[in-house]
């Protein structure tokens, strides 16, 4: 089963995030470009575009199952997350399956995550 829904404090509004450039920003102020630039300078990590293709009830109570197609290869990846878990959507910002719960638990303003949204994810860079 997925790990129980602890409260990752890095999603709490006001949490200080260090970019790979060394710059510090609050989590609610992050923009798409911050992730893109961080991946560029971090070495070994790359940003993938992960498109939400389905959102289902999880077999685990209190979780939702998100289905993505990831990266250029359009690989299918599914993950179970609590509905309040925020994802960063290109051009939109933080989004979750339950913006109300995200606001309640993290005070982080969120859009509703929907099928078709393109989220930022990371993977290991292919070192040839």
């Amino acid at each position: 089963p997925p790990s129980s829904s602890h409260l990752p404090s890095h999603f709490m509004k006001g949490a200080i995030i260090q970019l790979a450039t060394g710059e510090l920003k609050r989590v609610e102020d992050l923009q798409t470009q911050d992730f893109v630039r961080s991946a560029e300078v971090s070495g070994g990590l790359k940003i993938d575009s992960s498109t939400v293709v389905d959102i289902q009830e999880s077999q685990w109570p209190g979780f939702v199952m998100l289905h993505f197609v990831v990266g250029e290869q359009q690989s299918k990846v599914s993950i179970d997350v609590p509905p309040e878990h925020p994802f960063f959507v290109y051009g939109q910002g933080w989004s979750s399956c339950s913006p109300a719960r995200t606001a309640q638990l993290f005070s982080l303003p969120c859009h509703r995550l929907q099928v078709g949204d393109v989220c930022i994810s990371i993977s290991l860079q292919n070192m040839n």
Partner: peptide
């Protein structure tokens, strides 16, 4: 006066999921 207090700093990559596609052939 503002008393100094320790503030946690989180790395940017802790905020985004690591979605590793299965290895292509």
């Amino acid at each position: 006066n503002v008393e100094p207090r320790s503030v946690a700093v989180f790395p940017w990559h802790s905020l985004v999921p690591f979605l590793a596609p299965s290895q292509p052939d």
